[in-house]
Design a protein around this nucleic acid. Structure first.
Length: 160
DNA sequence: GCCAACGTTGGC
DNA sequence: GCCAACGTTGGC
């Protein structure tokens, strides 16, 4: 299976790219997704080695801050079983888990974060899911073409 | 199975 | 802070 690319949204007040950078081994589990479409992506399609664009939503500036790599494929999100978690789901059980998560490891920090404004103005990104009005999916597929354009913008012209 | 009410997301 | 868009819930 060819490598795939994804965009993951996070509100930096909850978990920022900086937080990821400072995590042990710069790795974290991506918990709290409670949307069926997003769950299906996490459970069925996100694979080890896939690329992730890390997007900050709901803040100034809204932007893609950098990239990460999937290091652990979909497995049950343990916070759904924890009554103290605000992601607790009383209808889910370890025998029949409803929600899944993946682990991601920081890859590249963008020299210049790619803001929503820039994304909107960039040729070739017109079809991005993120730019569609009313899109609320916290994980979205990104095409290889889009991925390459965005990496170029974020890392500068010097491609490593 | 429909749909109104409600809660959440997220850009502005 | 506002509100449009969307998903979920629950009464019928």
């Amino acid at each position: 299976m060819a490598q795939r690319y994804w965009l993951m949204k996070s509100e930096p007040t909850m978990f920022s790219f900086e937080n990821l950078k400072k995590s042990p081994h710069q790795t974290t589990f991506w918990d709290g997704v409670r949307n069926y479409q997003a769950r299906n992506f996490l459970r069925d399609q996100v694979k080890k080695g896939d690329g992730v664009l890390f997007y900050h939503s709901n803040v100034e500036p809204m932007a893609i801050m950098g990239t990460a790599k999937v290091v652990q494929e979909g497995y049950p999100d343990h916070t759904q079983f924890d009554p103290k978690s605000n992601h607790y789901d009383s209808d889910s059980s370890p025998a029949n888990p409803r929600w899944y998560m993946v682990d991601i490891c920081m890859d590249e920090e963008f020299k210049s974060p790619v803001s929503l404004n820039v994304l909107k103005k960039t040729k070739g990104l017109e079809g991005m899911e993120l730019l569609r009005k009313g899109t609320r999916l916290s994980i979205q597929p990104v095409t290889e073409k889009e991925w390459n354009i965005i990496l170029k913008l974020g890392l500068g012209s010097v491609k490593k």
